[in-house]
Design a protein around this nucleic acid. Structure first.
Lengths: 243, 243
DNA sequence: TTCAGGTGGTGTACGGCGTACACCTATTGC
DNA sequence: GCAATAGGTGTACGCCGTACACCACCTGAA
C-alpha cells in the first residue's frame, strides 16, 4: 500500500528534469553554490541518484550550457549579416543575463560539446552567408570571441563604495577623506567615475550602463569587420591596422 | 642541540615567500590543483601555518595576481598612445603566458585590490595622456575589457581530434568517417579548419596562431578607438556605428 | 634575571565537496 | 513466471578550506 503510494508519488528522474532543476538551482543560488548534493536535495533524491542520468558534474555543466544555447535565437532570416549577427549576439546576451551562472560555466570549461559546436558553426555561417571569405571569417570569429556569448569582462561593475541607498553607514567626512585618498591614488579612475554622473557628490555612482558598453565594443568590432570585408582583406597581407 | 639545528635550518616564512611559492606551484600544477594543503607541503610547513601570512585562499589569489601585475611593463614613454597601449597589452599577454593560471585567477574573482586598481588606473591614463576625452576613455576601457589582461576567450584552441603526433591511435578509415560526420554536422567550422592548413589531410590541424588572432582583434579595436577619437566622438551622440 | 606579550608554527577537528562501489527493488520483455 | 535491467540507496574515501586551541621562541621592560 505504501509502496503504491510512493510509486505514484515519484515520477522517475530523467536527464531533462535533472538539467532543468540544475539550471533553476543555479539561477537561484549561484554557480559556486551549485553542488551535486544540493541538487539532489532539491530533487528529493539521494546524491548518487543523479549519476544515473549524468556522468559527472562536468557533464552536468555541459548540459546546462547546452540548455542555455537553446534559449538563444536562431539567426534572423532576411537580414544583412551585420544586423543578423548583432541581433543574435544580443539574444545570447539576454540569455546570459537570465542565467548569471552561465558566464562562469562557460569560462570554466573548454567547450567542445555538440551543442557548443553547433552554435559556433551556425554563428560562423552568418559571416560566410554574408559573403565573407573563409579566411576573414576565421579571424573574425576569434575577434568576436567572448562577445559571441553575450558577455564581456565587466571591469567596473559594482564599485567598492556604498551606493546612495545606504547613506547612514559612513559619515560624510569619512567619505570625503576616502574620496581624496582615491583621487590621489587613482586619479584617472576617479576622473572617469566622477564624469559619469556629476549630478550629486556620489563618487562611484550608479555604475555603468552595461548594455551601452557592450554594444559600444560590439559595434566597434562589427564596423571593423565591415571595413575589412569591403576592402577584401586577407590574412596574407597584414593585420588590420598596422602602419 | 636539535633545537639549535632546527632553529637555523628554517628561515621563517613571510608573505613574499608564500606568494612566490604559490605562483610557482600554480605554474607547475595548474590553477585547479593549487590548494592550501599542497602549497603548505611545498613550503615544508603545516597547512595552517600559511594563514599566519595570508587571510585565506582568496587573498592568496589576489596576492598572486598582484605579483603578476608586477611583471607587466609600465607604459612605454615617448610613444603615441596607440603604440604605448599596444606594447603594454602585449607585455601583459606575455606575463599571462608565463603564468597560465592567471587567466582563471583573474576571471574567478571580482578584482578590486589596490594592485588591480593601480594597473587599471595607469592603463586609463594612457588614453587620457593621448588626448582622449574622459568620456571616450571610459567606453574604450570597457571595450578593451579582458584584452587589457592580454587574453581573449580562446575559442578553438585545442580541438577534440588527435593531432598528427599520435597517428597510430585511430585507423585512417575511422578518421575519414569522423571527418565526414564533422563536415556534415558542422560544415562551416570544417570549412575554416581545413582552409587553415590545407597541406595534408589534417582536419583540425596545428591550431591557430593565437598571437595573430589576438593582435587582429586588438588592432581592430585600436583602429576603432582612433577613428572615434579623431572624429571627436562623444557618448551623447550615438554608439559607434549604428546606421 | 626574570617574565609578559607577541609572533609564527602545530595538531586536531568540522563540515563541505565529488564520486566509486556494492546493494536493493520495481518494471519490463520473453 | 522469471531473468534482466533501469533507477534509487547507503556507505565510504579522499580531497578541500579553515576555525580554534595550543605551544615554542624571541623580544624588551622591570
Amino acid at each position: 500500500m505504501t509502496q503504491q503510494l510512493e510509486a505514484t508519488r515519484r515520477t522517475p528522474l530523467n536527464r531533462e528534469r535533472v538539467l532543468q532543476a540544475a539550471v533553476s538551482l543555479a539561477d537561484a543560488v549561484g554557480f559556486e553554490s551549485l553542488s551535486m548534493r544540493r541538487l539532489a536535495e532539491e530533487l528529493g533524491v539521494v546524491p548518487m541518484a543523479i549519476y544515473k542520468h549524468v556522468a559527472n558534474k562536468d557533464e552536468l555543466l555541459d548540459g546546462m550550457v547546452a540548455s542555455l544555447i537553446g534559449e538563444i535565437d536562431p539567426p534572423a532570416p532576411g537580414q544583412g549579416w551585420k544586423s543578423a549577427v548583432r541581433l543574435r549576439v544580443l539574444s545570447a546576451r539576454q540569455a546570459l543575463q537570465r542565467h548569471p551562472w552561465a558566464r562562469q560555466a562557460i569560462e570554466s570549461r573548454t567547450n567542445k560539446t555538440p551543442a557548443v559546436l553547433a552554435y559556433m558553426d551556425s554563428f560562423t555561417g552568418m559571416f560566410l552567408a554574408g559573403g565573407f571569405s573563409v579566411d576573414l571569417t576565421h579571424h573574425v570569429m576569434h575577434a568576436i570571441g567572448g562577445r559571441m556569448w553575450g558577455f564581456t569582462q565587466e571591469l567596473f561593475d559594482a564599485p567598492a563604495g556604498p551606493t546612495a541607498a545606504s547613506p547612514a553607514e559612513i559619515p560624510p567626512e569619512a567619505r570625503a577623506a576616502m574620496l581624496e585618498q582615491m583621487a590621489a591614488r587613482y586619479p584617472n579612475i576617479v576622473a572617469i567615475a566622477t564624469s559619469m554622473n556629476h549630478e550629486e557628490g556620489s563618487v562611484v555612482g550608479h555604475g555603468c550602463d552595461d548594455q551601452f558598453e557592450f554594444e559600444f565594443a560590439l559595434d566597434l568590432l562589427l564596423d571593423g569587420f565591415e571595413r575589412l570585408h569591403e576592402q577584401g582583406w586577407s590574412s596574407t597581407r597584414a593585420t588590420p591596422g598596422r602602419t
